[in-house]
Amino acid sequence: MIDDSGPIFLQIAALIENDIVSGALPEEGQVPSTNEFAQFYRINPATAAKGVNTLVDEGILYKRRGIGMFVAAGARDRLLGRRRDDFRAQFVQPLCMEADKLGISRGELLAMLTAALDGAGPEDALNTDVVSTRGRQHHE
């Protein structure tokens, strides 16, 4: 949902990206209208439009005149690629820093990761919080 964590249009863009990555919004599928976003999240329609247009500018969404907004072919792969790049900075680095702070040794950390990878069923993996912040800046 919308919170104070940054400009609202970036949050809207991130929410749409999440749905594309998760498959909830399939490629060539139609995206809700900016008015639908505005009503659902109770935000100004112009702000919602700005979020959607950010993704249009990046080629993730495209417009069909008079019909609406759709997910571009290849959008999911491109988003996945970007998220994988961000994964290190957003998750791996903080993990290592925190481990260091707690005096967890390299061996212990690796053992924990291995155990987590072995023990975690697909259920648990899905439950991890995928609502990540967008790994880039708001460019204006």
Binding site: S5, G6, A89, Q93, P94, M97, K101, R136, Q137
Partner: peptide, 18 residues
């Protein structure tokens, strides 16, 4: 903050909020 500044903040162990 730029992307680089945000990364620097994270590396310094700082938390950024709006």
């Amino acid at each position: 903050l730029s992307v680089a500044e945000r990364r620097e903040a994270a590396e310094l162990g700082l938390t950024l909020g709006q």
